[in-house]
């Protein structure tokens, strides 16, 4: 398997606050990696640095074998490293269709034509296919400002994937989504990303989501990676339990687990 992202010795401090210290990560094609950690642990800072939004104080970032540190957001996006946001970043006054039309326009032309129309050829059909893949076609003509939060999240992610990125970073795809909706939305999302064979890294607070969809976990605490392991292993790691998951969750899990064979085994190892 080929290495998509390789980060070595990444550092970032804001004054006296260390947001990232000695971050070393390597992600291979086809992986689905979950990033966990308490608030302020440095998860979003990590994504911001890798995608070019923040300049690291030190370290090396290689994407597809190329050094991308110091490149701008749009250059990195064009190389195929895209992201979605914790708070969806969409064009609120445009319809869902136009939001994606604009994204497709940018992705497919890599520029700013002044003469040709944005909507031409079969681009409209590709937009509609994309809407179907993310199951938001019902909202095609609704303004993004009027969307339910879950749909807006899916739109945000759909916009991030029009380039068929080689690596997609999702910042808390289920935050702000109700408990009833979250698995439905994650199923739609993971199915769509699987179809496009996208390597995914996502930040997530919800351990149920992590356990269900992720094969490998990076646990952050105070700017450092305290655990990088397959999901089952990370969930029982003492450091992770101490700093990330917290005891509350596990007490609850252990209690529920007695009636549930699959998770009982894991809970037993805690």
């Amino acid at each position: 398997m080929s290495v998509v992202l390789n980060v070595q010795g990444l550092e970032k401090s804001f004054g006296a606050v260390v947001a990232a210290h000695n971050i070393n990560v390597s992600i291979e094609a086809g992986e689905t990696v979950g990033v966990i950690g308490a608030n302020g642990a440095g998860k979003t800072t990590f994504v911001n640095m890798v995608t070019g939004y923040l300049e690291p104080s030190d370290g090396r970032i290689e994407f597809m074998g190329r050094d991308i540190r110091g490149r701008s957001v749009r250059q990195i996006t064009r190389l195929g490293l895209c992201r979605s946001f914790q708070v969806p970043q969409v064009f609120l006054s445009e319809s869902v269709f136009d939001n994606l039309m604009i994204s497709f326009g940018i992705a497919e032309r890599d520029g700013l034509g002044l003469l040709g129309a944005l909507m031409r050829g079969d681009r409209g059909e590709r937009v509609d296919q994309h809407l179907l893949r993310y199951q938001i076609a019902d909202y095609r003509n609704v303004a993004a400002s009027a969307l339910p939060q879950g749909v807006r999240k899916l739109l945000d992610i759909a916009m991030a994937t029009v380039r068929k990125p080689k690596l997609l970073m999702l910042d808390e795809p289920t935050s702000g989504i109700s408990v009833e909706e979250k698995f439905g939305i994650m199923d739609i999302l993971m199915q769509a990303l699987k179809e496009e064979e996208t390597t995914v890294l996502f930040i997530e607070h919800d351990m149920e989501i992590v356990e269900r969809y992720v094969s490998r976990v990076l646990a952050f605490s105070q700017g450092e990676i305290i655990c990088d392991a397959p999901t089952e292993q990370a969930m029982v790691d003492p450091l992770v339990q101490e700093f990330v998951i917290g005891k509350e969750y596990h007490r609850a899990r252990a209690g529920n687990g007695s009636g549930n064979g699959a998770s009982e085994g894991e809970a037993g190892r805690c």
Binding site: Q89, F91, L92, I106, L115, G116
Partner: peptide
């Protein structure tokens, strides 16, 4: 013609959200 062009759409979209424009791969300044 300009308003139907990508630049015309991006202009309107830019007013909504500059971050997304940059994260889509276009320079807002352009």
């Amino acid at each position: 013609r300009f308003m139907a062009s990508p630049a015309g759409y991006f202009l309107r979209a830019m007013y909504d959200n500059e971050i997304r424009i940059e994260y889509s791969g276009v320079a807002v300044r352009q």
